[in-house]
Amino acid sequence: MTDPGYNFAYLDEATKRMIRRALLKAIAIPGHQIPFGAREMPLPYGWGTGGIQVTASILGPDDTLKVIDQGADDTTNAVSIRRFFHRVAGVQVTTRTAEATIIQTRHRIPERPLTEGQVMVFQVPMPEPLFKLEPRLAETRRLHALGDYSLAQVKLYEDIARQGEGGSAYSHPVMVNHRYLMSPSPIPGFDNPKLHMSPALMLFGAGREKKIYAVPPYTSVVSLDFDDHPFRPVRAPHACAACGSTTSYLDEIVTDDRGGRMFVCSDTDHCAENQMARKAAE
């Protein structure tokens, strides 16, 4: 099944070892960004080159891979990455969260609670949570070293002052293990609580920025907030039009050009499971 023209999982073994070393270091220092020698991948930056390299480095022949983009298994990006690994590694692929051992994702964490032994691989466009606040990377490194995150707090202050409650809907920064400020990649704030004390291992890869970071299982992950403006995950106040869920994260879909719209689960696997369960119950 594996394309014989490629090494297993595309990357050469030396590169995988280099990335695994970075991963081990990242796991040892939760939330801390580790530089790595990102390779050119057969797809453009912004399409998940960081995530793909991480996945390629940890993938074994017995793994079952799931790839989602904005929660969906059937978007172009998810489909091509899944197909890519099927071709170069010959591994099993799935759309079922429960069956997957590795889940590569862009922008979401599945609704179904993750379990021990599962690994999430996040595609990260910008790993530096202080990026918009302090443009000098040498200075952001120093701020991380000193644990000086007042700037991020200032950003949060500005968000509340300008937009009132809610603040950033995506990429809401988190404190990992009470030490490092981390960008959870552009997942919605709704998913932030899923990072906290998760039984699964969370790996983050940024290809263009050449950084890897990680949250080991059962690690404290706390969203930045103010005492009088506690962090609150938000979801659209609707039920899913397809499965009726009132707890899942919803996508808003514009259905016509007259303002018609509907809300459906962003997690397609979760939605399908719900629908099946409903049918079974009927």
Binding site: D148, S150, V154, Y157, E158, I160, F226, D227
Partner: peptide, 18 residues
């Protein structure tokens, strides 16, 4: 903002009450 500029030192000193 002006308020954020003044508030930064308070936040740096651990101020967490908006």
């Amino acid at each position: 903002s002006a308020g954020g500029n003044i508030g930064e030192r308070l936040m740096a000193a651990g101020g967490r009450h908006y």
